[in-house]
Design a protein around this nucleic acid. Sequence first.
DNA 1: CTGTTAGCGCGTTCAC
DNA 2: GTGAACGCGCTAACAG
Lengths: 355, 355
Amino acid sequence: MKSKITITEIAQKSGVSVSTVSRVLNNSPSVSQKKRERIQQIIDEHNYTPSVFARGMINQTTKNIGVILPDITNPYFASLFLQIESFALKNMYATLMFNTMFSRDSRRFDTHLTEEDYFKIILEKQVDGVLILGGQIDKEDIADSFIHALNQLHQHVPVVVVGSKIEGCECLFVERNLKQGVTSIVHHFIALGHDRIGFIGGEPGIRVTSSRIEAFSKAMKSLGQSVYNPYIVTSDYYAPDGYAAMIQLLDANPDRLPSAVIAHNDMVALGAIRAMKDRGVHCPEQIAIASCDQFQLSDFSIPRLTSMDQHNEYLGRMAVLQMISAINGSDETITINHSPELVIRESCGATFKSG
Amino acid sequence: MKSKITITEIAQKSGVSVSTVSRVLNNSPSVSQKKRERIQQIIDEHNYTPSVFARGMINQTTKNIGVILPDITNPYFASLFLQIESFALKNMYATLMFNTMFSRDSRRFDTHLTEEDYFKIILEKQVDGVLILGGQIDKEDIADSFIHALNQLHQHVPVVVVGSKIEGCECLFVERNLKQGVTSIVHHFIALGHDRIGFIGGEPGIRVTSSRIEAFSKAMKSLGQSVYNPYIVTSDYYAPDGYAAMIQLLDANPDRLPSAVIAHNDMVALGAIRAMKDRGVHCPEQIAIASCDQFQLSDFSIPRLTSMDQHNEYLGRMAVLQMISAINGSDETITINHSPELVIRESCGATFKSG
DNA sequence: CTGTTAGCGCGTTCAC
DNA sequence: GTGAACGCGCTAACAG
C-alpha cells in the first residue's frame, strides 16, 4: 500500500514552509500569486490530499454523517437514502449507513444490537451528525431509556430524525405529511361512490400506522361516513403482511366485504391483491385498492396501483439541509412543505367505473 | 456539542500514566489486574472512547470501508449491500456508501460525477478498503483510463470488486456464477416441452448481460435447440425495460411468438408480464416466464414469478471476507462456490402444464 | 509491570 | 507575505 504524501514533502518540493502550503490549501488570501500557483501545481502533480486524521484532530470533523435506518431493502428507505446520500455528497459529506433491522419482519436477522448500541458505535465513528430514519423512534410508546440515549447522543453531535416530534426529545425533527395522503384517497374513494372502505397494513403500535388510521377515521367522519372496525387490519409494511392482512379481512367479513381498501404502501397493496386473487376476489371490481406510499413498481403490477407519490426526494434533501445547518451551529428549524400527490391508475377502479 | 473526554483525563482520574490507559485500551497483557479494572471502570463511567483521529494518525486506519455501487434503489444492490454492511460491522468495519448512478436508466439523475471522481473522493476519505459492485467495471469494453484509475486506487487501499475478472486489472475479484442460473432455466423450459425460447433484459454491452445470453445460447445448443435471434431483446435492468423489451419482442414476431421467455431479473419479468397483459397475451399459457435473479416480490406478483435464488447473502459475506483478508495483508484469493437455486412458482407454467 | 518521551500531519498562533 | 514553533490525542519504543 503506497502511503500518502504529506504536507511537509510538498513544502520541501516547493521550497516553502509547511504553513505556506497550508495557506494555499485553505485558500488563505495572504499568499503571493506566484507561489500559490507553483505550490498548487506540485500538489496536483503528486495527487496530494491532506490527511483527514491530522485535519480532524484540529477541527474535530470528519465530513461524514451517519444514517441509521431499519432496513435498506425496504424501497421506502432506499429511495430516501439515495437522495440523502447524493445530496450530502454534493455538500461534501459522505454517508455511513447502519441497518438496525428493527422491525417485526426482520427478526430472522441474527443481529443482537439494539439501536442504542448503534448510537455508541456511531459516536465512536466521530461523524459530524446523525440522521435517523424510522425504527424505534416511530413507536407509540418509546422506552425512556431510548429517549435518554438519543438526547445524550444529541449532546455530542446534531441528531435529526425524519419523523414526528416527540415529547422530551431534544433532537431536530423533519416531519413528513402522513395524513394528507390518506385523506386524499378517502376523498377519491368516496367520490367514486364507495361506502364500505377499509384500511390495511402498518405495524400496530407504530406512530406512522396510527397516524394514518387516525387520518382515515377523521376523513371518513368528516364526510359523514362511518368507520367499520373489522375493515381495519394492521400487520406490517411488507408484501407478506399485506397478504396476511387481506386474508384476515376477507375471512372476517365473508358476507359483507369492503368495496375499497386503503393500503399502507405499495408492497402491502401488492400482497393484498395477491391474496384477493388467491381467494377469487377481483380487484378493482369487487374491492378497489389504493396505497399511501408509492414505490417503483406501481406502474407495472397487475392491476396497476393507484397510489400517493410522497415526493421522498424532497424529504431527503430537507433532512440533509437541516443536518448541515445544525452542524454549522444554526439552531434554525427547517419546515418542510411537501404535498403528496394522488396518482390514479387501475387498482382504484376509477377508469373501470368511468369506462 | 459536548466535546469528548481524552485519554489524558482518564489517566489523571485513575492516577496512572496515559500509556497504562492505552495499554488497557489495546488489551495489552502487561497491566496488573487491579489497575486494569479500576481504569476500565473509569473509562466506562465517563463513556470514554479513543479519538479516531489520533488513532488513525498512527496506524493509518479508519475501520471504514467504502462501497461504490450504481443505485441502492435497485433491489439487487440493496440486498447485497445489506449483507455487506451487517457482516462488515460484525467485523468492526463501518460502511461508507456511494451511488454512482452509472446506468442507462439513471440519466435523469443530475449527477455529473464519473466513477473516477468517486475514486478520488473515496481515497480522501481514507477508507481501509473499497468494494465495487457493478457499474462501469461490468462493461464489455472498459476505458483504459478506468482500469488505470482502478489500479492506482488499488495501490493505496485494497479494492475488491464483485464481478468477473478483468484482464490487466490488479484488484481482487469475487465472482458470481452468472451462467448456471440461465442454464437451469433453459433445462427447466425444455423439460416442460418448450421449443421457442427467448431472452429479454439486461443492458447490451454489459458483461452480466452478454454472459447470460451466451450461457443461454450454449445451453440451448447443447440440448439440440436452435437459438432464434429475434427472440433475444436487450434493454436494461428495470421494469420499464422489461416492458419495452417484451413489446418489441411481441411486435417483431406477430405470428410466431416464443412459448417461453427468460428474463434477466424479476423487475424485467414483471415489466414483461405487464406488457403481455396490455397486449392480451396470457402468461404462462401463451408465453411462460422465468427470471434469473429473484427479488423480494416474486411470490406476490400475478402470476407468481418462477426465478433463481442467487443467494446474495453468501456473495456479500464472501466479498467482505476477501476485503478483510486483504486489509490484513493476506494475498489469498477467496473462491466462492454458490449454487443458484431454481424456485418454481407460476409464471413458468409448470403447475399449469402439470395440472 | 509501569512511566517517560518522541513523534504522527496538520492548522494556528506569533514573530519577522 | 512568510516561516518557526506549538499542540491536538494517541501509540510505540525505551527506560526503569
